[in-house]
Design a protein around this nucleic acid. Structure first.
Lengths: 281, 281
DNA sequence: CTGTATATCTCGCCT
DNA sequence: AGGCGAGGTATACAG
């Protein structure tokens, strides 16, 4: 297909999309006039949409520090929380930025489009000489970001560095089988008390306490000094209540810190060595 | 003007721009098919253009740490140096990134467009379910970024914190007039030797050494122990050579550090106090 | 090249 | 609200 036709078709397509999209908080212009930009920016800001501008600008910043940069083609993004980032064509870090909640103004005077952002005594001024592309859109992103580590990784981290549970804790085995099932980590505290640890990578709930209680209760008959610890990033209020009633304990332990322990200690300590270490204990 | 007409005109405009722009390394699609995206991404990468993709994606990262995030609408930017940043609709920091020089691949399989980036054992996988907007463009930005401080600020910083020149330096006046003109900062070192400082905010060149030498030479007749120091962020090789021959000295001093001194010490030390301090000496 | 100090650090957690 | 510590810190600079 010749380029001409391809673009003609694409343009028709684009036209139709524009009609639908502009209802739903989307707008886009290529090589717009600065007046048009000014209009679009205002619309984006009032819509609390994400605004993207690509064009030739110079930037002045004054606040905790001061910076200045002359003309160059850059990408400016104003997010829906009014944070601002400006990126040059290279490098991972923005050349200038402004945190969430800043007050953004836009002014078109002469041949310059000025976008100003104010936040707690800090001023970021961006002056566009020309704009290649401007667009805003409503973006939805409700997903939760997680530094990833499995419960298995958390157990591994405890075996690698038992002090993350408490000073002097010594693991004996992992996943010991008991009459009530199996437990995650089994060991002794610094006073020689038996310790049973249940690991959860998410918030510990009532059911987790109940599960741990079942293990511990089965063993308390023969060993009254036994301790039960639930290791998790957090614990629900009702689970905490039950925890106290059942004389169990909670230790804060996040997948993230475990992931770090594995990464850092894992350099010297291979899995083989780890298993050997576990066997020794 | 009714919306319909406005967009029709805009679309025509867009169409014409596309024809010119696509020659010069620019392409843009709204709501493209993933196949089309794949094509555009390949073109962007081979052109070493800046690529912007807005769409619904999930992201996996594995390297120094691991992270995972489910579906959400985000902005992905691949810069011309193959650095990657992915921004969520809010917040100043990217949710995931990859440094410059990473190897980027793109694969369209099923209903998913996968963009992978590899760098020194770190893998970033982005899976797009749909794309709202894709565009690439060649951006030119040769401007130099500077943490801003004038030569005046640098002199002020020396007066505020003379130790940045050397331990025990005590400024007496700034801009002392001599028979050869005026000098930037004039003072005494810890041994009581007279010191003349010439401040430059950029690399010190031969001509700067010559200028300083003229001042110093004029005073060496009456005061052989006089020292001449050029304070600048750096010095050119030929200037350095001349510096040694003329028995002058160089002290590294950047506008940035001066800017910091003024910011930090300026909190306690107002301009009035500063002037008073300068008068005292 | 490696290690260290810096940052408009940002961000989250804690008091 | 203020202080503290971590970060996939990134980045500049010294050794």
């Amino acid at each position: 297909m010749p380029k001409f036709t391809r673009y003609a078709l694409m343009t028709l397509d684009f036209y139709l999309i524009m009609l639908t999209k502009c209802m739903g908080g989307f707008k886009l212009e290529v090589n717009p006039s600065l007046d048009k930009c000014s209009e679009i920016i205002r619309e984006a800001l009032s819509n609390r949409a994400v605004l993207i501008i690509v064009g030739n600008c110079s930037i002045d910043y004054n606040g905790r520090a001061s910076s200045k940069i002359g003309s160059g083609e850059r990408i400016l993004i104003v997010k829906s929380d009014n944070s601002v980032i400006i990126h040059r064509p290279g490098g991972i870090k923005p050349v200038n930025w402004q945190p969430s909640g800043s007050i953004i103004k836009c002014e078109h005077s002469g041949n310059i489009l000025k976008i100003s952002s104010y936040f707690k005594g800090e001023v970021l001024n961006v002056a566009f000489k020309n704009v290649i592309l401007i667009s805003f859109m409503k973006l939805e992103d409700k997903a939760e970001f997680s530094m990833y580590a499995t419960e298995e990784d958390m157990k591994k981290a405890i075996l690698m560095n038992p002090n993350i549970i408490e000073e002097g804790f010594i693991p004996i085995t992992d996943e010991k089988h008991t009459s009530s099932g199996f437990i995650d980590v089994y060991g002794k505290d610094s006073r020689g008390n038996t310790v049973i640890i249940e690991v959860k990578k998410d918030v510990a709930l009532k059911k987790d306490i109940i599960q741990l209680y079942r293990y511990v209760e089965g063993m308390r008959k023969n060993n009254p000094s036994i301790r039960g610890i639930i290791a998790s990033p957090s614990i629900s209020p009702s689970a905490k209540h039950l925890l106290i009633k059942t004389n169990l304990e909670h230790v804060k332990l996040t997948p993230k810190i475990c992931s770090k322990i594995i990464r850092e200690e894992g350099r010297e300590l291979t899995l083989d060595k780890l298993n050997a270490k576990a066997m020794d204990n």
